[in-house]
């Protein structure tokens, strides 16, 4: 099995096929979905898409890191990181596969 990489274009193509809007409008709606999810996360919200998964934010505190090449200490400022927790449905579909 060779691994393929899907992009926005492939998602837009699916919307075009499934819903029957123009290719252009399908592409802009796919973008709109990603934009709204990003906006909610940027506003600090958790995004829970039932039967897909949950995007949640974690606050990381400041710590001292090290440049692995030079050994120099570099301060790492506090930051927010995103974690994705897949739904049971997604986990089951992925582990079962359709090979």
């Amino acid at each position: 099995m060779t691994e393929k990489t899907l992009t926005r274009m492939d998602l837009a193509e699916s919307v075009f096929r499934e819903v029957g809007l123009s290719r252009n409008e399908s592409a802009s709606l796919v973008e709109s979905v990603l934009q709204h999810v990003s906006d909610a996360l940027a506003a600090g919200e958790t995004v829970k898409i039932s039967s897909f998964g949950t995007f949640s934010l974690r606050e990381k505190s400041a710590r001292v890191g090290r440049n692995p090449k030079t050994g120099d200490e570099v301060p790492i400022s506090p930051r927010r990181v995103l974690t994705f927790r897949p739904s049971h449905l997604m986990k089951d579909r992925v582990s079962g596969g359709t090979e």
Partner: peptide, 23 residues
């Protein structure tokens, strides 16, 4: 239908062992 298609397609791609890259 549009929103469901987007998320379903991502799951379908992963189920087939593919990657989905959304720059």
């Amino acid at each position: 239908k549009i929103v469901n298609t987007v998320f379903d397609e991502i799951i379908e791609a992963l189920a087939q062992g593919n990657r989905v890259e959304l720059r």
